[in-house]
Amino acid sequence: MSLSYLLRRLGTLLLVLVGVSILTFAIIPLIPGSPARVMLGVQATPATVATLERQMGLDRPLPVQYLSWVSGIVTRGDFGTSLISRQPISREVARRLPATLNLAVVALLIGLAIALPAGFVSAMKPGSARDLGVSIMSQLGVSVPDFWMGILLILLFSETLGLLPSSGYRPLSDGFVPWARHIILPALTVGIISGSIMARFVRSALLEVLHQDYVRTAHAKGLPGAVVLRKHVLRNAAISIATIVGLQMATLLSAVVVVEIIFAWPGLGQLALTATLQRDYPALQAAVLLSAVAFAVVNLLTDLSYMFLDPRVAYD
């Protein structure tokens, strides 16, 4: 891989972010309702709404608002001030980012821990009872909405069994046990769902490779099954699996919003939802931009991982 390739990719990333930010800035004012009205509630009058909007700087032309926002980010790394809490958004994001990253990583690991064995087991004997079992389970996992899954898990593990807390977040710095006790249920909620989806892709990726001529040849020339699997099947399926994992990040990001609300998890998803409902434009902008960054970075990493998984892939 050459440096120029990486620079090109990063350049594209930057363009994507500029595009995303312009798009959100253009779309947001089309949503009816304003943060001033949310603050004032049913007691809003046209005069008080106008005064608050002026204080919030919303009476300026949109391009002016956009440019002042962008220049804040570029020159000071400053995402602006929340219209509702009047706090710097950068601080808010910095506080929430670790919670969301923790949740996303653990959920992805749980998802993989479900998807890889399940997909493998069913692909080895397609049409068997085991395969059917895995299909049914993954169908269930895909069909159950995330909020419902979360509540079911709380009912089971918190209320009935009394094993785990029903909500809240503790950082890893508070100790592993409190951290783990709090993260298990939300991560499991997201993990079961994304694992169920990934299991189906893993199964079909493996099946596709298993039916390739070179696998038959490998078997024919007498290689032991385990070696065929390791050297020919898994290596080749790895590329598709990496793609799926990358794409799953998008699902994960949206599932995290819902799960963060249910489990009172102080992450970016919660920030995004509150910002949307309260029309806190700068906070919403920051949340959207960060999701875009996360998504683009994961995509880039996925593409780069191909190089290691498959020596035929070279970027220049």
Binding site: I31, P32, G33, S34, P35, R37, V38, G41, V42, A44, P46, V49, L277, Q278, R279
Partner: peptide
């Protein structure tokens, strides 16, 4: 939802 409701009512 609330923000839009407030606007329409107002």
């Amino acid at each position: 939802e609330w923000a839009e409701w407030l606007q329409e009512q107002g």
